[in-house]
Design a protein around this nucleic acid. Sequence first.
DNA 1: CCTGGTGTTCCGTGTGACGGAACGTTATTC
DNA 2: GAATAACGTTCCGTCACACGGAACACCAGG
Lengths: 244, 244
Amino acid sequence: MDRAVLRAFQILEAVSRARDPVRLSSIATDLDLQKSTVHRLLQTLAAMGYVSQEPETGRYRATLKTWELGSGVLNEHPVKRAAAPFLEELHRLTGETVSVMVMAGDDVLYLDKIISPRPVRFTTRAGSRVAAPLTAGGQAMLALEPDARAILERVAERLRGEREMDVELLLAALETVRMRGYAMSRNNPAVVSIGGAILGQGGRAAGALSVSAPIERTDADKQALIIESVRVTCTRMAETLGRL
Amino acid sequence: MDRAVLRAFQILEAVSRARDPVRLSSIATDLDLQKSTVHRLLQTLAAMGYVSQEPETGRYRATLKTWELGSGVLNEHPVKRAAAPFLEELHRLTGETVSVMVMAGDDVLYLDKIISPRPVRFTTRAGSRVAAPLTAGGQAMLALEPDARAILERVAERLRGEREMDVELLLAALETVRMRGYAMSRNNPAVVSIGGAILGQGGRAAGALSVSAPIERTDADKQALIIESVRVTCTRMAETLGRL
DNA sequence: CCTGGTGTTCCGTGTGACGGAACGTTATTC
DNA sequence: GAATAACGTTCCGTCACACGGAACACCAGG
């Protein structure tokens, strides 16, 4: 366990999370480190090109090299790679915003998306995390998850206060999701989302696809179209993924 | 200069670049490090969640946490943020594949893109680098670059053998690019690309937008439409960016 | 059964990361 | 405008800890 490495990454995380450039001393107090230590580590990161310092204010920001590093990882990710053509197909079939996601802890992590050309939009960007039970894709994956209960309980605990969740009710809902083969979520009241799991090895979900559309342009027919599109695209993608 | 930090990042770079999981010993020989050192650093990275080890083969791969780290950086990037609506506008106007990019050393770095729904496509993904003079967007930016000559010479040197470049000819071409306000590239013979610079502070380019279309569906009228769309979108984006 | 490869563990050595204190500048305060 | 505060930076003595060499356990293939 190299302490310096651990700290360097903590610093880089802090710097890249922030939307504005960060002061050295605020990092030092946040991470409870000595200023001189933070300074040395930031200099090391700067020498490698991962952070840069604003000449006028002295504050630090993460550079795009940090992004390039991660970008390479995503582009080799099997689910993201396999999803590309199916995302496009799903987008073509429905004309709405479509996303691929995978489980990451108790959250879904959005890997990629194609946004609807139409005006209405909402705000899950690639790279963002959302608690799995709050999303249609997450529910579709949880329905295949053996210890869904544990996840639901942890999330319910975590979101206590901002959002009340009835674990038993949600478990029952997952049962119907499993029956029907898709999940529907009205997390955002103006948007209806429909998600399907991409079956991977061992009956678990390798990932999920979802379609999100504004409620006002989603009548029963449109909804049926989306559901069917999600189901066939998910099963076809699972076949492709299994062949790799 | 923390040596361990330097090495940890070198290792993470090596692991995330690779498309297949990497052997510990291959990293050790590549970076000329002791196996025990690599092992310790990989354990540290694994403990932080940036790499994981395949249980069966023992090989290492980068995790999506590495991607999340960089993903946050991109989403706070001023050019990428400002570009989003203009990318969409340009896509709507032309119906073709559109990209935003910035200069990164002697290369352009693609930040984002919207792909054409039509079948033809080609292969610059977000996060990839291409030598600036080879792209329309890069040429548009080089036209505003005081030391374009130095960049052209370095790139010509770097690409010697794979691709011959006449620096004087290209400098003259940049002159016409500056006159006309856009650049055109036929780097890929089947595709025509038209790029425009987004004017930033000090007369330099903050970034560039480009449109790429298959040659067979690009007649003179279409081309004129694209050129005009690129020009107005770039100037409008520059105004927006300047107001921040 | 041996050889060559893997990833892993152990450990003595010495270097380089560490934190505290002092520094020079730049904002902020009264 | 002096005083104060907060910033990033530099210096330095101390000792933890990163280091690399060697030995380990394991799995292939010959």
